[in-house]
Design a protein around this nucleic acid. Structure first.
Lengths: 346, 346
DNA sequence: TTAAACTGCGCAATCGTTGCCGAAGATTAC
DNA sequence: GTAATCTTCGGCAACGATTGCGCAGTTTAA
């Protein structure tokens, strides 16, 4: 710790009371202009900086917000964190980042830590393996402001910010269909995740709207969420051979998208399958084998989520009406048409 | 903020004094076994959690460490952060992460913020544009524990952890030479960065040891550090044409490595140049055009740096002897020999 | 038997800051 | 000229946890 000079030091040096110093520093109207400049100048001279810990204790708030993501080493999350940080710092809040690594226990423990550190509010993207939400509902009921982003959660009345996953997946699947693909698999993260179920919804809607049969054998979930490449290898091998025999796959997860590219690159010969995946990797367009991708506006998502949380924190009356913000995903097509007769530029 | 139950509540409920409760919770020897279990059980029952803010104020330390990196969206840093976090949490420290975005002003402001938040120590990887170190030397002189990692700093007596950059670059350049390349350029981040100058040292050593002439026109620094692809495009275009006419390039920065791949991919026809770059991207091996790479042990670097810092924090006597830890980089060759007569497997 | 030591616990101060109340003195109002 | 109001500030207490000191009561030692 690191605070030589306190408000008391100033008070003593100027022979006034600490309360006067405090008020002078906070520009209270009940301090004369003379004393104010006196205090301000001396404070500047000895480089006084108020102790936020003492303020936190006194004011019962810490001016910091806690963030829980699966993994900062995931481009999507690191971009979202950048967005969060930009807004938070602008508004005088500090950001404490923790990672669940998609593990339920770590999610619980980390959130406990954040609450112990007296964060004023939480920005949460659910861990993939969380099915019991009681640790969050309890906090929410006790009045802790929470905003969900990306992997949102039903059942808690609060702001939520995420990509329009249904539509994005719908667009992607529809594009594949228009390009002539018909055996289209769906590869997702854990099914309880909102991003998984929403994207699956878009996929099935697209199939239905284009009169393609929904085949549940083509829908797979990776329990390890891309961390275990063997799991993905097994699934892809199966899907690429009889009876599934897919010609395209829609991947509903960042990590699985790149993991799938890696797995495919090990196949010899390279399977003839067209891949569209959700990904925010900054080099996704340089990967080989090629992959089409849906890019989320992660930075903006972080910004909006932080903004919503700060809205709650600074609202004087309790907020009753919450909305869910949906951001557009951006589809980048880098594949070929299956049927060469179909124009490739849609 | 969020702490219904305090030590006083327990005291009142049990009709004892707060001091007794405090001592019981901390297992002081001057509290009888009976009262201890009484307190402990009741504390557990009402789910008491001590308020770390109050503790910080009293104990003059916050049990948190501040981290400054250029950008969390950089694979190297996010991996290092994972390493830091793993060690920090194990030892009961919280981690506050801030980003300089390679900007000097933001580095200064963020470090001020961290110090204001009363972090017990700092883990710092310098911003690329920092040439004035006074904000750090001052803190260090006032006794704030600092450990540098990755982009280390001369002139401050403390622990430093980084990759053996001289050797890694030496190996990479030597390999290129052995593979038959002779016009080898060096592309680096800002020259004042330790990682840039060390890697340049390795490059020049390798040239010398293999009797190749050092040509300063082949050594370039990207002021924007890979953020501005036009800068890299210009440099590469120049290097690839007369009179430089390079056949290989050693890239001494994560961001520039992937940026260079992107730039090269836009050239038509694809230039015949072999690239080795420092990179910790998890998909670097899938990029096209291909790039050989030196991978740093970022996770371990984070772990060691955190460990060193905690060593300082928990040491009862002031530490006078500091060492610099050098981690091995791992070279992955994915190129071809220039001269087909030379065996490609070394 | 009496002094010394020990056991178990409470009081009060402390960390730095802020809210509330009240006390002077100055100013205004009637 | 007196009362009311305003201005400007100090004192006290509190946020929650910790800790030195001291005070009883009990045990031990001589």
């Amino acid at each position: 710790m690191f605070h030589a000079v306190t408000i008391k030091d100033i008070a003593k040096a100027l022979s006034i009371s600490p309360s006067t110093v405090s008020r002078a520093l906070r520009d209270s109207h009940e301090i004369s202009a003379g004393t104010k400049t006196l205090v301000l100048e001396y404070a500047k001279k000895i480089n006084y900086r108020s102790n936020p810990i003492a303020q936190s204790l006194k004011n019962q708030k810490s001016n910091s917000i806690g963030v829980l993501v699966a993994d900062v080493a995931n481009s999507f999350f690191s971009q979202a964190i950048n967005g969060i940080e930009s807004v938070a710092y602008e508004n005088g809040y500090h950001v404490i980042i923790t990672q669940s690594h998609d593990d339920y226990e770590r999610e619980v423990v980390n959130i406990e830590h954040l609450v112990d550190r007296c964060v004023d509010g939480l920005l949460i993207s659910m861990s993939a393996h969380t099915t019991d939400y009681s640790h969050l509902t309890q906090l929410h009921e006790r009045g802790l402001p929470i905003v969900f982003f990306d992997r949102i959660m039903p059942g808690i009345e609060t702001y939520q910010v995420t990509t329009d996953n249904v539509n994005s997946a719908y667009e992607a699947a529809s594009l594949l269909i228009k390009k002539g693909y018909s055996q289209i698999a769906f590869l997702g993260n854990a099914p309880q995740l909102s991003i998984t179920s929403d994207r699956l919804q878009g996929y099935t809607d697209a199939l239905k709207d284009h009169s393609l049969r929904y085949d549940e054998r083509l829908v797979r979930f990776c329990d390890q969420g891309g961390r275990n490449s063997q799991e993905i290898k097994n699934i892809l091998s199966e899907l690429l051979s009889e009876p599934a025999n897919i010609d395209a796959v829609l991947i509903a997860s960042d990590q699985i998208s790149t993991a799938a590219v890696r797995v495919l690159s090990t196949f010899d010969p390279l399977p003839s399958v067209t891949v569209i995946g959700f990904s925010n990797s900054t080099v996704i367009d340089l990967l080989s084998p090629r992959i089409s991708y849906i890019q989320q506006n992660a930075f903006k998502m972080g910004q909006i989520a932080a903004q919503k949380l700060i809205t709650i924190l600074q609202s004087t009356y309790p907020i009753r009406e919450f909305d869910t913000t949906l951001l557009r995903g951006k589809l980048h097509w880098r594949g070929k048409s299956k049927n060469k007769l179909i124009a490739d530029h849609m």
